[in-house]
Design a protein around this nucleic acid. Structure first.
Lengths: 218, 218
DNA sequence: TAGATTGTTAATCGATTAACAATC
DNA sequence: TAGATTGTTAATCGATTAACAATC
């Protein structure tokens, strides 16, 4: 049986990975749940609970072996064989992502981009840009499962259909449109407007709290 | 007293806003909690509960007035006066964000960028790019509270200190480094690697579940 | 041994959902 | 009136935390 972990826990696993790599680079071999907790501003109970759930064990004397945790995390995440990802829509954001180095840490590689604007097509580039017409064939030939969607809002629904028909199983959606994911397709959203608006809300809240405090003192 | 809503609820509020603007553009004047729930794949109980918490009321006959919900949402979010945001780090991602139109919907405007690379400085541009040395003055003179951090990972901690000293109150962090937010500063992370890795996990999970099903049938 | 940490259980907390009375 | 929807209460669910026995 495959255990199913929820989104938050998996995110936390990725955060553990990050901080453990940092600890490792600083020369540490082992960590206590407390070290991780403090670095990430969570409780050590939660760290131990997570590790328990993920089947990561330590010892009462020396805590946890960093390398052993990392191995286990990679195993759970299925890191190992390189994950090939394509980008559909090579505008500003698409291009920024294509050029972005640093996915390699997690065994992720962006292998191609797809565009409707013919001026951007460039099959000879290091990361080739193909016309969207070739999407379907490319996805099948290279058994691509993951796509990043970075097209204009207007065509997002249509693009979703294209990806679905091409056989894509997971989409990271940079479009502001919320897409109802259908049968067997996972869609995750990255909505920068919402992130900003959320941040602004909490910053203004701090202000308002301050004002409250002041008026309460009067 | 200022009510404090949690992160998830505020995000949902933003999603409500999006779908309601869509409904409105389709000519609708009113909605039922059910319409919203179905469009967003959540329960109508939750929609009504949220609305109750946010002080949005409707009628048993005609549901909710879209415009009235939108007004209330904007009121809660504090939309109205334009929110000025700066970007520190004008690399690929920073540049993509600077050029990105579409924040205006939420009353957000990127007003300036800051860079260490002198070749990128351009104070005459539509959205001017200044040297980081001018950050502090600019932030104070223009009472900027929000910054987007899009610098290389190596300098993220240092950049955080710069922003804090300049008086920034909220940071949207595009860096993979997890920053422990200190006194009175809100830090939100956008970690595209993690988003991708998370997506990949869930897609692979679907596969593994399928395999399980097959092997169970044998 | 004394002290510290893991692993785990039980308690707590909070968010979502179900259900339904009140209302139009 | 009959039917449908809101608003709200109580039930459920699940995740986090506190606490502590077991262990090194």
């Amino acid at each position: 049986m495959v255990k199913i972990f929820d989104r938050e826990r998996i995110f936390r696993l990725l955060t553990y990975k990050g901080i453990l790599l940092k600890f490792k680079s600083l020369g540490f071999i082992r960590v206590f749940s407390d070290n991780i907790a403090e670095a990430l501003d969570i409780s050590s109970s939660l760290v131990r609970k997570d590790f328990g759930i993920f089947g990561i064990s330590g010892s009462q004397k020396g805590g946890y072996h960093i390398d052993r945790i990392l191995e286990k995390i990679n195993e759970i995440l299925g890191t190992g064989d390189l994950q090939k990802v394509i980008i559909i829509g090579v505008g500003r954001i698409g291009e920024a992502l294509i050029r972005y180095k640093g996915f390699e840490n997690d065994g992720i590689k962006i292998v191609a981009g797809f565009e409707t604007d013919h001026r951007k097509i460039n099959p000879q580039a290091e990361i080739p840009i193909y016309p969207v017409e070739e999407l379907r064939d490319y996805v099948r030939k290279n058994s691509i499962k993951i796509a990043i969607m970075a097209v204009p809002e207007m065509v997002s629904q249509h693009t979703y259909e294209l990806l679905r028909e091409a056989g894509i199983k997971g989409i990271l959606n940079f479009t502001p449109t919320s897409i109802k994911s259908s049968e067997g397709i996972v869609v995750n959203h990255v909505n920068i407007e919402h992130e900003l608006a959320n941040l602004i809300y909490f910053v203004n809240l701090e202000n308002r709290k301050d004002e409250d405090t002041i008026s309460n003192n009067q």
